[in-house]
Amino acid sequence: MKRLKYLAVIITSLLLVFTLTACGSQSLSSQNIYENDKKSKTVTWGVKADTKLLGLVDVKDGQEKGFEIDLAKAITKKMYGKDAKAKFVTVTSQSRIPLLKNGNIDAIIATMTITPERQKTIDFSNSYFDAGQSILVKDGSPIKKVQDLNNRTIIGVVGSNSVQNVKKFAPKAQVLQLPDYAQALTALKSGQGDALTTDNVILAGMAVNNPGYKLQGKAFTTEPYGIGINKGQTDFKSAVNKALSEVENDGTYNKLIIKWFGNVPGFNYKEVLRNDSSTNK
């Protein structure tokens, strides 16, 4: 019995030490992510795994592919040189902000709109893409515009601002929030809702390989996508912004737009092209 008592004392003190060291660990705000990444020559990006054209895991090799992935790689190279590496962590709309705040990732490039609510919690780079919220419906659906969704069911994704936006346009719509876009689209196909709402560019990606479904009506909001960065990381933020405008000015940006969106029905890529050097945002 005596020995067990010793054991008890040891375990309790171990727990205590663990908690204390945990609390004492360097807090995120005091770290300089720009300098850390410079040393490791790696930027860890939070990206989507389920969004065709933007960020999608390829079944063939398990790699993430899409416009945001390529853009993240280009920005990383502009920031830290040709041999710098972009590391990718797949996130969902629900997990991206907690992961950024916790420091699992250095930046979010995952179809995230710059909104005032989010700006209270995190910082954004300049916008890197201009999307707009729209709806995806089945061919022949009676829904012509977002206002038609009153008293109907609309599907969205947890953590996206689309679910809050749609309530402004169709206050009587019932909104179902699913964990990710793959499930949201499948739920739409299963008839769980009358329309799926999110940004037009994501919906266009869905429409590509789902014949029988189409983007309906004009985009009813503007959704400038920004790279999410932790508050207080001013060095990192200005480096990202500088790299982004370089990518836009040297024509890389437009090349990527044409590569990913050049041939997407229902989506006019010319609207999102950024003129070389004329749009210095």
């Binding site: 795994a49 389920d50 999608l56 895991v57 079944v59 398990g62 797949t90 996130v91 969902t92 997990s95 990710d180 876009y181 793959a182 499930q183 689209l185 499948t186 196909k189 390989n209 789902n210």
Partner: peptide, 18 residues
Amino acid sequence: IVVPELMQHGQVVYGQDP
């Protein structure tokens, strides 16, 4: 939390084509 286990890989596969 997007752990690349069986269920998640299943979702990626049927995400390509419903």
